[in-house]
Amino acid sequence: MPQRHATTLLEAASQIILGKEHELQLALSCLIARGHLLIEDMPGVGKTTLAHVLARLVGLHFQRIQFTSDLLPADIVGVSVFDRATSSFRFNAGPVFAQLILADEINRATPKTQSALLEAMEERQITADGATLPLPDPFFVIATQNPSTQIGTFPLPESQLDRFLMRIRLGYPDRAAERALLMGEARRELIERQQPVIAPDDLIEMQHAAQALQVADRLIDYVQNLLAATRQSDEFAGGLSPRAGLGLLAAARAWALIEGRDHVLPEDVQCMFPHVAGHRLHLAGDGRAPAPAALDRLLQSVPVS
């Protein structure tokens, strides 16, 4: 029952991360759609907690990499060291060899280091010393990023941003949720006590189920119309790529699965669109990332077929 796994997981997660049901569902959709997630927000709103909780609940092998300006590619991928006992080089696998990786403050590292991780995300394998080592499955990266206006950051280039299926923001909790947070136990302790509610295999099952979801011709029409609208709009410089279109459909499938449907609706597409398109589009003129209102206008301009 792939959908029940999702419900169980979300229920458990929302016990720890309070008042963020929608964001949790988005993050899970990204996981089910086999995409990587970028969380962009101020420090302290629970980005790390979210990654941690997901790993814990699914029982995934979790690694956290704190990106700093002096982090080197080898610190992520691993390094070959000379083993005196065997008189040969032995590959010390880096933290990237995990099922769920939290790349914290990815925009603090230099582009070279960033690209080491991003290449691993794309290829789902590591090539070191001429040998190709596969990364575990599922392999899921949650990167967090502080708003790039902050000092000492290296904003991710467009091509790298494209490797993230979705970008979400967490935002401040509402008053009630914050009160519960303030009055409750420390989240860290809660996480440590939390047992997995589903197995990694269940996650893989969900991923397969989402891929098998029905997509009607009309929905494909709608997705194509949306893509065309991004390309023809005067508001944006350039439109969404075919890869973004594939990602949009995959994310909508995952969302529909969590919603308990065996088919994808335009609503699913509309729900995912701002998160799939937001970091890929640029405003015509100054080239900045579009405000949510601009994406909404675009959605409003394309009729549901």
Binding site: P266, Q270, S301, P303, V304
Partner: peptide, 9 residues
């Protein structure tokens, strides 16, 4: 119905 509104919404 708004043209861009899905059936469930």
């Amino acid at each position: 119905r708004h043209p861009a509104e899905g059936p469930l919404d």
